[in-house]
Simulated assay, not measured.
Amino acid sequence: MFLRQLTYLIALDQCRHFSRAAESCGVSQPALSAGIRQLENELGITIIQRNRRFYGLTEEGKRVLLWARQTLAALDGLKQEAAFAQDIAGGSLSIGVMPPAIQVVPLMLESFRAAVPALHVEVKVYSSTEITRMLREHHLQMGILYLDQLQADGAFEAQALYAEQHVLAAAASVQLPAGKHCSWADIASLPLCLLSRNMRSRQLVDAGFREADVTPTVMLETDALELLHAELLGGRLASILPVAALPERVGLSGLQVRRISGCASPDVGLVRLAQPNTSMLLMRLWDVAKTLSLADIYTV
């Protein structure tokens, strides 16, 4: 017994005509008639009252029709459940994140997994430019990057997560300017460790020094956030980092920070490729991301 035979029977009952039923099923009339006869032979009963025309269902046929409807309804429910399980209860997500925002990911994943408990996530660290390229090529499904790096060609959907705030950071053993704020000139005299020049965060810092017409004392440049953290916590060098990229140990027993006057604050956001057909999983996670409130977390 094939599912299509049950479909033929339901269509025949609805159309009350062999040709119209065959047309609704996308098959020829002989194929539909043969399918019904095969079903009758397999069940050993007569289902259709017929001569050359359709005269209705036998009593046995009516019971088979009821069973056929229940079977196809159950199958449709099974298909929906399978799609739900694949796309919502579990599923996989690939995210690209720029280095200064890497510490945002655990907070986001906590919210994602609350909505999708069995979610499997692959996180890769790239520059903003690389993330947009890999989104276009479908290597990534979402990215966390500077929104001003997106081209205005309508290829992406984005939602801002927070406005990035850069701060001067150093261990308690390092003497920093008094007060809560400092200038680029104040920072220039300190021995610094900074992110690499190819990174957007560093380019914003360099722009601040240029506009202030001062030259910083850079002792270390790296694209490894862990190395900057080690230098900061070891009390060897100061750094300029986004609040989102600071180590957790900030305060009296950890790092001291100063706000920087006249520093750009670009929006950091979640980005996905704009496309007409989006999976249930991505739609669900996108809605979850809209509820995130990160602005207060990454501001000092």
Rank of each mutant, 00 (worst) to 15 (best):
T7A: 15
R200T: 07
P106Y: 01
S253G: 11
Y8N: 13
Q175I: 14
L252K: 07
S92K: 09
I36Q: 01
I297S: 01
A289N: 07
A163V: 01
I36V: 11
V105K: 00
T7N: 09
T299H: 05
L220M: 09
V27C: 13
V214W: 00
K124Y: 12
Y298G: 01
A188N: 14
T222P: 10
L204A: 13
R133F: 05
E81I: 08
M280N: 09
L255H: 00
N41P: 03
G154I: 09
A68H: 00
I88H: 08
D223H: 08
E59P: 09
A89N: 11
L294M: 07
G143A: 03
A178F: 10
A178N: 15
S19D: 13
A101V: 06
R53V: 13
C182F: 04
Q80H: 08
H138F: 05
A11S: 15
L78A: 10
A207F: 03
A160P: 11
K180G: 08
A207Y: 07
Y8W: 12
A264D: 10
A207V: 05
A74I: 03
H120V: 14
R52A: 11
Q149M: 09
F112V: 04
R197F: 06
Q5L: 05
C25R: 04
A101G: 06
L43F: 01
P117Y: 06
E130N: 09
A185G: 12
V268D: 01
A89E: 12
Q275S: 12
L233T: 13
L220E: 05
D186S: 13
E59Q: 15
E221A: 15
E248K: 01
L135N: 05
F2P: 03
E81D: 13
R16Y: 06
Q151G: 02
L32D: 06
A207Q: 14
Y162C: 00
S239A: 15
L135D: 07
K180Y: 07
S183H: 03
Q70V: 05
L109C: 08
G254I: 01
A295M: 04
P99N: 12
S279N: 02
M199N: 03
Y146D: 06
G56F: 00
R113Y: 08
E221M: 05
I144R: 00
L232E: 02
I131S: 04
K79I: 10
E42M: 08
L190C: 10
S28G: 13
I240W: 00
A212N: 03
G90K: 02
L43R: 15
R50K: 10
L281T: 10
M219L: 11
A212Q: 05
E231I: 03
G235R: 04
H229P: 05
E164D: 11
Q159E: 10
I297C: 01
P177N: 14
L190D: 05
A212M: 07
A114R: 15
D186W: 01
V105Q: 02
A172S: 14
S189D: 14
I144V: 14
S189V: 15
D186C: 13
V243T: 05
E40N: 13
A115S: 15
A11R: 07
T215N: 07
L93H: 02
A224N: 11
G44W: 02
A114K: 15
E157S: 15
Q29D: 06
Q175E: 14
R113A: 10
N277D: 14
T299F: 00
A178L: 12
L292C: 03
S127C: 07
Q203I: 03
V27Y: 01
R113N: 09
A22P: 09
A163C: 09
D213N: 12
L194N: 06
L140M: 04
G208D: 09
